[in-house]
Amino acid sequence: MLPVRRQDAPALADVLSSAAAAMRGEGGALRLPRVAGAVVLVVDGLGAAQLGQRSGHARTLATAPGGSLDAGFPTTTASALASLTTGALPGEHGIVGYDALVPGVGVRNQLRDWGGAMDPATWQRRPTLFETTPSIVIAEPKHATSGFTRGVLRGAEYRGGRTMADRFELAADAARERSLVYLYVPELDRAGHDRGWQDASWVDALEEVDGLLAGLLRTLPRDVGLLATADHGMVDVPESAHLIVPPTLLDGVAHVAGEPRCLQLHVGQGEDAADLAARWRDWIQDAGWVATRDEVVAAGWLGALDHDVAPRFGDVVVAARGRCALYLDEADPARGMVGQHGSLTPDELRVPLRRFGAFA
């Protein structure tokens, strides 16, 4: 049985919406004080557990007021950032995984494979918060005109900074404009994928983020608030915990989407999802959660599942527990990643929410 989402608890989907509400003099779900402008810093891949275990390397983040909240499920960047920028859950905005089924087309990556049926104007189904609030997005220049940007960040002015330091400098300038500022930092996540979050390269990236944040706070106008959060945490998966899926378990499966810590299985015509789920439960046992789409919806993770979104999400979901990951064959290139995410463990699901400036 899947863990059940606490619907009364603040989540990542509430963060940007609450910051925008604070600029209107409303508290939002986070009950923030009124501000003239707001900055939302998103450190990709920074879980609450990882920050806690490396707090000595991030004193600014670690000692700030606030706590943690759920990023949402699946714990993957495409879904989480869409929830953050729309204030909606995946069943409503439609970005339901890292790889997801485009009905009638096939499985496509939700960060990169835009175009055609994945039209940025319609595939992400909800208005963004940037479309109703004067907003500035600060991220890497290479993403300025991407399909993901046009789908999930639409409505904001995009400003690109090549390095982390460049982006924090742009954020310092943008904060003085009293707008809603979204500052995105992907470097920590990349270090985690490459070498794991326990590697020195990950700690180096965390120290750089924390130092730049401290510098930004010194220049932050008194009437501007800053929230620091993340899109998901991370689990280091050793090679010994790579589970190769027996080919017989794919009998009756038409498409496999998701990612190694959260497979989404789409059954073929005439196949039964409950039967497929039972076979996977017999195989994976305590190493993972197995649930049908209806069970995921009942647990609250997708929110209200729109009729047109439902076919995008797997008929059966296999989410890893512990430190394992699932691969369809020995040659899967994803086996080269150390740090991974996508599932429902606290290390992936819980992310920090820290308050600074006028929000502290």
Score class of each variant (00 low, 15 high):
125 R>K: 09
184 Y>N: 06
86 T>I: 03
187 E>D: 14
196 G>C: 09
157 E>R: 15
116 G>D: 01
98 Y>A: 03
194 D>L: 12
89 L>I: 04
191 A>G: 09
173 D>M: 12
130 F>G: 08
90 P>F: 15
94 G>R: 08
137 V>G: 01
93 H>A: 07
156 A>P: 00
129 L>Q: 10
203 V>K: 02
156 A>E: 03
158 Y>H: 15
190 R>I: 09
211 G>L: 01
107 V>W: 01
175 A>F: 06
186 P>T: 13
106 G>Y: 11
148 F>S: 03
109 N>P: 14
135 S>E: 08
160 G>R: 04
106 G>T: 11
102 V>G: 00
131 E>R: 11
160 G>T: 06
131 E>L: 06
163 T>A: 02
192 G>M: 06
165 A>P: 13
124 Q>R: 09
114 W>H: 11
110 Q>R: 02
205 A>R: 14
159 R>H: 11
206 L>I: 13
183 L>H: 02
143 H>M: 11
212 L>T: 12
121 A>V: 11
126 R>Q: 14
202 W>G: 09
212 L>R: 15
195 R>C: 06
199 D>K: 03
96 V>M: 13
113 D>H: 14
91 G>R: 10
175 A>Y: 07
98 Y>T: 05
88 A>Y: 08
128 T>N: 08
173 D>K: 12
201 S>G: 04
174 A>L: 01
159 R>T: 05
128 T>S: 13
112 R>N: 05
178 R>S: 11
110 Q>Y: 00
98 Y>E: 02
167 R>I: 04
94 G>H: 09
122 T>R: 10
133 T>C: 09
122 T>V: 06
146 S>K: 09
199 D>Q: 05
208 E>S: 12
141 P>C: 07
127 P>C: 05
86 T>Y: 01
173 D>H: 12
140 E>K: 13
155 G>H: 12
179 S>D: 02
206 L>K: 10
138 I>D: 01
105 V>N: 04
110 Q>W: 00
197 W>E: 02
127 P>G: 06
114 W>E: 08
142 K>F: 13
155 G>C: 12
136 I>H: 01
88 A>H: 12
91 G>C: 06
99 D>R: 10
125 R>Q: 06
93 H>F: 04
137 V>M: 04
120 P>T: 06
132 T>N: 06
195 R>A: 13
156 A>Q: 03
203 V>Q: 05
104 G>C: 06
137 V>F: 02
136 I>Y: 02
207 E>M: 13
154 R>K: 15
130 F>N: 10
162 R>Y: 10
200 A>V: 04
128 T>M: 08
213 L>R: 08
88 A>T: 14
186 P>G: 11
132 T>A: 14
111 L>R: 12
138 I>S: 02
93 H>N: 08
120 P>L: 07
94 G>S: 07
202 W>H: 12
100 A>D: 05
106 G>P: 15
163 T>W: 00
130 F>T: 13
93 H>Q: 07
191 A>Q: 14
109 N>L: 03
207 E>P: 15
199 D>P: 00
118 M>K: 05
140 E>G: 03
90 P>Y: 15
87 G>E: 07
98 Y>N: 05
127 P>I: 07
190 R>Y: 05
146 S>P: 04
117 A>V: 14
168 F>W: 06
90 P>E: 15
137 V>P: 00
165 A>M: 07
157 E>H: 11
101 L>G: 11
200 A>C: 00
177 E>M: 13
170 L>R: 09
147 G>Y: 01
125 R>D: 02
181 V>D: 03
149 T>G: 01
